Simulated scan of single mutants.
Amino acid sequence: MDRTDRAAPGGRRARKKAATRQALADTALRLFMERGYDQVGVREIAEVADVSVSTLFNYFPDGKEALVFDEDAGNEAALVNAVTDRPPGQTIPEALRAHFTAFVTSPHTRDPRFAELQQLVQQTPALREYARTMALRHENALARALADQTGRPHDDLLCAAYARFTLETLAFAGSRPDPVAAIDQACLLLDQGWTTTVAPHGHDPA
């Protein structure tokens, strides 16, 4: 192999590893959707993807559940980066609103198969539990980033609460006909607070 190609971050080896990882995830999801999560084992996934079981676990050490959530690490990093790498002058609420809007309007999220995946997760106890643990990990990562950006301690309750309620906007938006409008309104409420958002419209803010 050419030394330059091997050393480059996007070189042939990196591309091959990424392709193998994607093939494993795609194969697993297809089999899960066809026959059900509990009816498919890691050995079968490896055989259909034409790799060894040990290779599968090298890419997905957490096993079957991780194959469904293969973008977990990238999603968490993107969430944190939305806060830590936001453009000068952009507030944290603005950065998170932009990040969530980009997510719900992405081709991946708008693909009908994404809804089928969400349904599979909700119907499978092991996947629901993995999703809950994953969401908590993302929440904690976001809370730490918020604390670092505002000079607060990592156990700050305000940052923890904001991280939790902000991430809930994605689930809220996913249940609405217009996800972008749902994110706008949820983020407006979180940014300005209940009293300042609702009271001007003549409703009791209590």
Rank of each mutant, 00 (worst) to 15 (best):
R3V: 10
D5M: 09
R6M: 12
P9V: 04
P9N: 07
G10A: 07
G11W: 02
G11P: 05
R12V: 12
R12Y: 08
R12S: 13
R13T: 08
A14K: 13
A14G: 13
K17Y: 12
A18C: 09
A19H: 14
R21S: 08
A23V: 06
L24P: 06
A25N: 10
D26F: 13
D26C: 11
T27I: 14
L29C: 14
L29D: 14
R30L: 13
R30F: 11
L31W: 14
L31V: 12
F32H: 11
E34A: 15
E34M: 12
D38T: 15
D38E: 15
R43S: 14
I45T: 03
I45K: 02
A46I: 03
A46L: 07
V48L: 14
V48Y: 06
V48A: 06
D50K: 05
D50H: 11
S52G: 09
T55N: 01
T55F: 05
F57W: 11
N58W: 09
N58F: 10
F60S: 04
P61V: 11
D62L: 14
G63W: 01
E65N: 13
A66M: 04
V68L: 09
V68D: 01
F69V: 03
D70G: 10
N75Y: 15
E76T: 10
E76H: 08
L79S: 01
V80A: 01
V80N: 02
T84K: 12
D85Y: 12
R86K: 09
P88I: 10
G89S: 03
T91G: 04
I92A: 02
P93G: 05
P93D: 03
R97T: 04
A98F: 01
A98I: 06
F103E: 03
V104R: 01
V104C: 06
T105G: 09
H108Q: 11
T109S: 06
P112A: 04
R113A: 05
R113Q: 08
A115Q: 02
L120T: 02
V121R: 01
Q122M: 15
Q123W: 12
T124G: 12
T124K: 14
A126M: 07
L127Y: 05
L127N: 07
L127T: 02
R128M: 11
E129R: 13
E129I: 09
E129M: 11
A131G: 14
T133G: 15
M134L: 15
A135I: 11
L136C: 12
R137C: 12
R137H: 14
N140V: 05
A143C: 03
A143Y: 03
L146D: 00
L146Q: 04
D148C: 07
Q149E: 10
T150P: 00
R152H: 08
C159R: 07
C159I: 02
A161H: 06
Y162W: 10
T166K: 06
T166S: 00
T169Q: 01
L170P: 04
F172H: 10
A173G: 07
P179T: 05
A181S: 13
A181R: 09
A181N: 09
I183A: 08
D184C: 05
A186G: 00
A186V: 02
C187T: 07
C187V: 02
L188D: 05
L190P: 01
Q192W: 03
T195G: 03
T197K: 01
A199P: 03
H201A: 08
D204T: 01
